[in-house]
Design a protein around this nucleic acid. Structure first.
Lengths: 177, 177
DNA sequence: CTTGTTCCATACGCTACCGTATGTCGGGAT
DNA sequence: ATCCCGACATACGGTAGCGTATGGAACAAG
């Protein structure tokens, strides 16, 4: 899944790797799609669990928790998890059922992250904007290849986290033309 | 490409759709990979062209141009282009040559966008952070499914554009714990 | 009129899959 | 001892796709 995406989940390949046979596979699953749906459901549950864990903050430490969320997702250490995340989202672009699951997960994620901003005293609409920016950023950055661009990636990521979490929003002075 | 990603580019299917035969295909291309590489090259050239077009601003109008870039990418009107972009990036996750092309395109894009920020008087490092945030955001948001989350998507996107382009960065008051 | 080149069509072999049909084997229930 | 059923394994048919081999029409050169 992480390495080849959903396309790499072949019945016969999986069976061979797991030292069972196709007969056994088709005993446990109706067909390939049945397996994929089970994986999807399992992924969803894992994500929902993770979300509440990552966004639960001690009162007063909500801002730190926001930084933690940004860090966890953009960290190279959870690369495998992000690969799976991207594989699922790629799948969701073409499959309605996968899209529905991703929509659910996104919704919960955004609400939980928004609650963190709200707890920091950020107004509702700004909290919505910031948490959307947060997740779009973490997913988007994992799609980019930017080694050549900036030598000090640590500073870059820290500054971006600041922009997402703490920059002073500026709207009053009228929009761009 | 847009609909099924690189996996949808099958030799026989393409030949049929284009009213030619496999024989003709293999006359013009060595093999399937040769076609894919040609597509990749073509994509790269198209992107590089587009980048300089989108980031060329009249002096004094750089900020407006930044908003324009954000708008162009996150607009639903260029959905097809974004689908292709995502397909290429998905490909790049598994293929070194595709990754190299994406790296080139990313590098040019980031530098061009950074120049816009620099022209607005933003300091170098902050400009780097903001343009990286910009592109990560536009790619990331196209992966998300957020209909249920916020009713006023127009305001949401406008506010996010403001955060990326004009928010006052805040670092002095010490980082989060 | 032959010969060669370009450009394309047809036909083939091969592999990787999917899903199904059928065989088999161990352990309760009777 | 027999029967049945759960939990596999094996074998098969069928499709989609890649790449190759070969055939052939059009056209130009000599």
């Amino acid at each position: 899944m992480a390495e080849e995406g959903i396309a790499g989940l072949r019945v016969e390949v999986l069976a061979k790797r797991l030292k069972v046979t196709k007969g056994s596979f088709y005993w446990h699953f109706d067909d390939r799609r049945d397996l994929l749906m089970a994986i999807l459901q399992h992924w969803k549950e894992g994500r929902l669990c993770d979300i509440i864990k990552q966004t639960r903050a001690q009162p007063g430490k909500e801002l730190a928790q926001i930084y933690h969320v940004i860090d966890v997702y953009s960290a190279s250490r959870s690369r495998r998890g992000m690969m799976i995340e991207l594989a699922v989202r790629d799948w969701a672009r073409r499959d309605a059922e996968a899209a529905a699951i991703v929509a659910e997960v996104d919704d919960v994620r955004l609400r939980c992250a928004r609650d963190l901003f709200l707890a920091c005293g950020v107004p509702m609409e700004e909290a919505s904007s910031r948490c959307m920016l947060l997740y779009a950023y973490v997913f988007g950055v994992s799609l980019m290849i930017y080694e050549k661009f900036d030598s000090d990636v640590v500073r870059l990521k820290r500054d971006i986290a600041d922009l997402i979490a703490r920059s002073q929003s500026a709207r009053p002075p009228e929009a761009a033309t």
